[in-house]
Simulated scan of single mutants.
Amino acid sequence: MDSLDFKLYEVNGILHRKLEANPKIFETAVRDFCDGVVKMNGNDDQLAAALSGFGMDQKDSAKDDKEEKEKAKQAVPTWQQSLKIGKRSEDDDFHSVTGIAVHPSGDIALIDKNDNMDADWNRGSPRVYVFNPDGTQKFVLNSTDSKESPVGKLVNGQGIAVTNDGKYLVADGTTDVKVFDAAGTYLESFSTLSEDVHKGIKKSSRCVTVNRNSGEVLVGDFHRELVTVHNGDDFKLVKEIHVGLQPVHVAVNKKNQVAVCMMMHEPAEVVAVNFFYRVLSHKRAGGKVVAFDYSGDELFTIVPIMGDELAKPYGVVYDSDCGLYVAVTKFDISSRLAKPNTGHIHYYNSSGEFVKCVAKGLYWPLGMGIGKDLLAVADKQSARVFKPE
């Protein structure tokens, strides 16, 4: 990375922190700023002058609310791995653990979307495993109602959640979410479509979570670019929250704020070819986390950065204080994929401001689940359980 690029990483961080409360202002600011910054050729005086136009200087981010931020960091625990779970042992022998949930009993449920993949990497079938709190396997969810009528069979399961009364919910990559009882027996399925929606449209229930206050179930529809809200008792559709991008993971807190981790595929050519081309094309092609209220109004946007490199967000989960954990990895711009063995868990406050990194050393963290003094992470080839230090 050359010196100008490094300076611009710093500039992007300042702009992001100062303007993240209003993403629309952030977009406009960097578009205007990037046109001028490429003409500077790394000149420090010009860079400082440009920053002063935003009412900032290059040391601004280090001075602002330093004591408050330090107190906030101290209040948030760092998490230490207490358990690693593989299919048969602690080996990394799952193929693609994408979703994970913590049962009220303390059991850990995870979904391997490509279980039984063969040696030639032909895709397997999704399967949900449930483990005791000590990591010993308890059972596999019954994925068929009977051999004659396999209505409970998983098709393309990727997300999992647990209701307040202990039922397992699996977002199955179709219009349906499948429901299993606490013993793993298939009960029913419910649709994410309203009656007036054409049944032939492309749709995909990619992720699912539960509002612990109301019991409502929220499902992210990847292809329709929305989150559906369902009654917690009969799973009937209550409303749709249009988020405008493809949800990969979803979380909700006690204030009914919905955090959605999103995939984006807009053309990168919409931004001028300079450093901000890279930053903003990452926002479109890589991913971001956006928080909404139940009305669909945007509250804040998180575009994570790890050091001086772009980061790709995957899983999200709220704690009881409405703080948000985000699973991130470093990001390869050319492949649009994560860089394995670079996984972190970042913590943001209820306003979407970065507080601290709470865990490192993960392979490729995807979904997350939270329980009492417990954070469970689907780490692609295994599951990891963290407890506060």
Rank of each mutant, 00 (worst) to 15 (best):
D92V: 10
V317C: 06
R336P: 05
M117F: 00
Y325C: 09
T136S: 14
K202P: 06
V252G: 01
A359Y: 00
L187G: 11
L310H: 08
P77G: 04
F354G: 08
L280W: 13
E266N: 14
S214T: 15
N114W: 09
F131D: 06
T28P: 00
D107W: 09
G173Y: 03
K63L: 13
V227W: 01
N122L: 07
M306R: 09
R88F: 13
L375H: 07
V128Y: 01
I370H: 04
K330N: 13
V197E: 15
F331P: 03
V210C: 07
Q46V: 08
N253G: 04
Q158S: 13
G287S: 06
V377P: 06
V38C: 10
E269R: 12
F180E: 05
A182Q: 10
V217C: 08
T98E: 09
T329K: 03
G135H: 05
V38P: 01
H230V: 09
I345D: 03
K69Y: 02
A182T: 11
S189V: 08
L51V: 04
Y314S: 11
S189I: 08
E27G: 09
L337P: 00
Q58Y: 06
E216G: 08
V11W: 00
S191Y: 05
K288H: 09
T136Y: 01
P133S: 13
P247I: 02
N349T: 08
G232I: 07
T28W: 04
L226I: 07
L237A: 07
M40K: 08
G361M: 02
F190W: 11
H344K: 13
A48F: 00
R212T: 15
A285S: 13
D319C: 03
C207A: 14
F131R: 07
E70P: 01
G124K: 04
D35L: 13
N12C: 05
I14S: 02
P313C: 06
S149R: 11
V317Q: 04
V243E: 05
G343P: 05
A75E: 10
T228I: 07
V229D: 03
I14W: 02
P304M: 03
V217D: 04
E353W: 00
N132F: 09
K372W: 01
F354N: 08
G367M: 09
Y294F: 12
A272V: 15
K372P: 08
T174M: 03
V385E: 04
A29G: 07
R224W: 00
A268D: 14
A285Q: 15
V162Y: 00
G200E: 11
D319Q: 10
E67M: 11
Q257H: 15
N22I: 06
S382H: 13
S96C: 06
F331Q: 03
K66H: 11
F139M: 07
G13V: 00
N156S: 14
S143M: 07
W121E: 14
R284P: 01
V316S: 04
K167F: 04
D373Y: 05
T144N: 05
E68N: 14
G369E: 05
R88S: 15
K239I: 04
L375P: 09
R336I: 11
K84P: 05
C357S: 14
N156W: 10
G315I: 04
P340L: 01
K356A: 11
N156Q: 12
V197T: 15
R17S: 09
V355C: 06
K63I: 09
S149T: 14
